[in-house]
Simulated scan of single mutants.
Amino acid sequence: MTSDRPVVVYPPDEEGGRRVRVDGQISGRAYSARDVAAFLQEAGLQDYDEMDVVRSSLIEWRGGGPDAWAR
């Protein structure tokens, strides 16, 4: 990963999903911190789990933190 905050989690959409961008590329839609962790694992952070996602300074949460999944 190349920048200080290479992961952006966008605000929840109408269905409760949040787009996730990792290193400038959209990885998909997450519906929980577990989904965000899966995207990070696919990007090379295999040891990341849900608790790492909640505490990580790598992630910029837009439109609510790791507990905001409904619009």
Rank of each mutant, 00 (worst) to 15 (best):
Y10C: 10
Y10K: 14
D35W: 02
D4P: 11
Y31H: 08
Y48E: 00
I59R: 05
E42F: 05
A38G: 04
R29T: 14
I59F: 01
R21P: 05
Y31F: 12
A68Q: 15
S3H: 11
R18H: 13
R71G: 13
M51G: 03
G28F: 05
G64Q: 11
L58D: 08
R62M: 11
S3C: 10
D13V: 07
L40S: 06
L40W: 04
T2M: 11
Y48A: 04
S57L: 12
W61A: 07
R34I: 01
V9Y: 05
E15I: 10
D49A: 01
E42I: 08
P11T: 06
R19V: 12
V53I: 03
G17Y: 06
E60V: 12
L40H: 06
G64I: 10
G28Y: 04
R5T: 15
G64E: 09
D52H: 00
I26M: 12
S32W: 03
S56F: 01
V8E: 15
R34F: 03
S3G: 10
R21V: 15
V9R: 06
A70H: 14
P6L: 10
D47F: 02
E60T: 15
E15L: 13
D49E: 01
A30N: 08
R34T: 03
W69D: 00
P11L: 10
F39Y: 14
Q25R: 14
P6A: 14
P12M: 11
V36N: 01
G44D: 01
D4Y: 14
A70Y: 11
S32T: 00
G44T: 02
S57F: 06
Q25M: 12
G24V: 08
A68T: 15
S32H: 00
A68V: 15
Q46R: 03
V22D: 05
